Simulated assay, not measured.
Amino acid sequence: MRLIRTTLLAFILSSLLAACAFPPETALYQQSPDIPPYEQDSFADYVSETRDWIATHRVFLTDDHETEIARNIPFEIRPQASSNQTSNNDAPRRGILFVHGLGASPWYFHDIASAMAQDGWLARSMLLPGHGTRPGDLSLPDYDDWTGSVAHQVKLLEREVDEVWLGGFSTGGNLVTSYAARNSDIAGLLLFSPGIEPGTDLLFLTPVIQYLWDWVDADPEDNMINYQSLSTKASALYYRSVTDVADALDAKPFDRPALITMSAHDSVLDPMAILRRFETGFTNAASRMVWYDVNPAPSNDTRVESKNSNLPDQQISNFSHLSALFSPSNPYYGVDGSFVFVENGQEDIALPDDSTKLWRSAWGHIEPGKYHARLTWNPYFADMIGSIKSVTN
């Protein structure tokens, strides 16, 4: 039996190594001198120093350096004075800190943060160390850098508001859930495609593979707010976040309000496992799960709300891992946005010359006669903001 296990492990390792990538010899895949500092005394200093760091160390993809910097630095949106929760003389009472996913940027939360600020929230979005500059920098941070930067930003936010919520996308969802589960002063969670249950059983190998191989994937870098390439060190950090959040939720279910959004066609995660985790691991009666699928969610939990993800009148077949976050009017990922994920697992299908003929879906979805680009916006964005208001109230 031991020989069988050893042989199987060797086969899996050899298969993974065969799939590993050889990136081109460019600055994108080299490393900056270090990660930027993240323990500044104020959020304003954090933004300013991070901006300077990115301006110095980023490998720019376009000639528009200012836009690239702006979409990769931390930001905050303060509530307008006319809000019913704040005034010219009153500080905001409630705040939320958003944490992006692996390879992504703070700008992933631009649309949600803007909507919540209009409702009286102080909304901040931070940058995880290793992001915002070049894919090679994802091999620089340790897991303690990620958890430490989240913890520090929480403390800064707690100085300014009475009530703190945390929000996260994918890997960021793991980080904020782990923190909130162990810190009772966090009022609740907003989780968008949280990476709690990965879509592969082989992640446990990444702590070993990171010492054998540098890159899992090396793709052309053309997206200013998301790395397309993935180092083995980054994969190992994600795996660490998975085990960390599992330990936290297994020790005690999360008993404060939480919102989770999930596409049943998510190509990165295990949607059914996350649905079951919500049913048993998020016990507050005010918690909600928004389930995007062609069919109603396979759950008897009345807190789960289903949204039809097959919208042929909008040329949408289903929802992707990231689509819940963005408004249809988003200038980069929206309906008329400047960036389109055309490489979407459709290698054997001809890309149409007319972009209006593109359909949208999760990665890898294929239908005869249709070319599917990635869906990068949420047709139900306004409804999702309504769900956020319901859960947070």
Rank of each mutant, 00 (worst) to 15 (best):
L166Q: 00
S139H: 03
M289E: 02
S105D: 08
P220V: 10
R94S: 13
L61P: 11
I69Q: 07
T283M: 04
V150A: 00
D111V: 13
R134A: 08
L175R: 01
T133Q: 10
A350H: 06
G345H: 10
E221R: 04
L311G: 04
I69F: 06
A44T: 14
P298W: 03
L138F: 03
L13Q: 05
H131A: 10
A251M: 13
T50F: 01
F43Q: 09
G369Q: 11
I54A: 08
I274S: 11
L190R: 00
Q228M: 13
A218I: 10
E66Q: 15
R94E: 10
T147Q: 14
A27E: 14
A18I: 09
L175E: 00
Q40A: 08
I54C: 09
Y143R: 07
L175K: 02
F60N: 06
Y239H: 13
R240D: 12
R5Y: 11
I96T: 09
V164S: 00
P194C: 01
N318I: 07
T67K: 11
L128Y: 02
L138D: 12
S299K: 06
A258H: 02
G103D: 01
S114A: 13
D145M: 05
F278W: 02
I96M: 12
W377Q: 09
I77V: 15
Y238D: 09
E25H: 12
E25A: 09
W291T: 01
L122T: 02
G130N: 11
I385C: 09
T86H: 04
D348G: 13
F319M: 07
G103T: 12
P368I: 07
